[in-house]
Nucleic acid binder design. Structure first.
Lengths: 116, 116
DNA sequence: TTGACATATTCCCATATAGGAATATAATAC
DNA sequence: GTATTATATTCCTATATGGGAATATGTCAA
């Protein structure tokens, strides 16, 4: 078996750095393909192809206006990623907090040493 | 150019569902390869290979004890994913909040209608 | 040393990619 | 209808993959 297709789920779609960049540029606005071409500096087919992948996994939605197609981010489609990664965030935050505590304790001890 | 290698960054490493599953099973514990083989029900080479990818991107760390190798999650390596996805979480949460607000307003209106 | 156990590596293949170039489709304007 | 603009699709290729099977490496125990 090969790797899961990029259109399999948001994880695979967003693994490609360019597609993350595209979503960032899109942000909260609604942009036509040519706007994205200009802002990203990529070729038009490249932008269209990446948009195609993002659309297939529901990460962007498309609205046709005249000969333009306006795209916007559908942020909710990123929820599975957020939900998956968040529990792990607890882990490293706890570690940092323990480290902070440790450093503070050491500082306290140093103060006491100097006082003597 | 082909797709970025799975060892390119945490995004690509974690795009594979099995590797996410492996990290989940690992959780906060430190497990030997055979423990993982048993818990996951995969073949031993498959577990070793996925661990190899995860290790290359720093998502797990390895400690050798006798003939065993104990692995644990290095959660901080997931921080780039967390940091990237979190701003988007704002977007869909705001949308939900606006929706909630809208629904509440509608309920209020209904009450007033009935009073008349 | 030899065997048993724990883990990693190699070889194989079908499959999907991202990018470039060229071309197709679709909608508007004249 | 024809030209023009906006966008999508097709064809190409190099490259990496995940899984299976077989094998190699490394470590302990008798």
């Amino acid at each position: 078996m090969a790797r899961a297709p990029t259109t399999f789920d948001p994880f695979n779609a967003v693994a490609e750095p360019k597609r993350r960049q595209l979503l960032e540029v899109l942000g909260t606005s609604e942009l036509a393909v040519n706007d994205l071409v200009e802002q990203l500096g990529w070729t038009q087919p490249m932008v269209s192809k990446h948009l195609g992948v993002l659309k297939q996994v529901g990460l962007v939605s498309e609205r046709r206006v005249g000969r333009q197609r306006l795209y916007r981010v559908n942020a909710e489609a990123l929820k599975p990623i957020y939900d998956w990664v968040t529990p792990f965030e607890q882990l490293w935050r706890e570690r940092f907090e323990r480290l902070d505590q440790l450093l503070q304790n050491l500082q306290e001890e140093q103060k006491n040493v100097r006082k003597k």
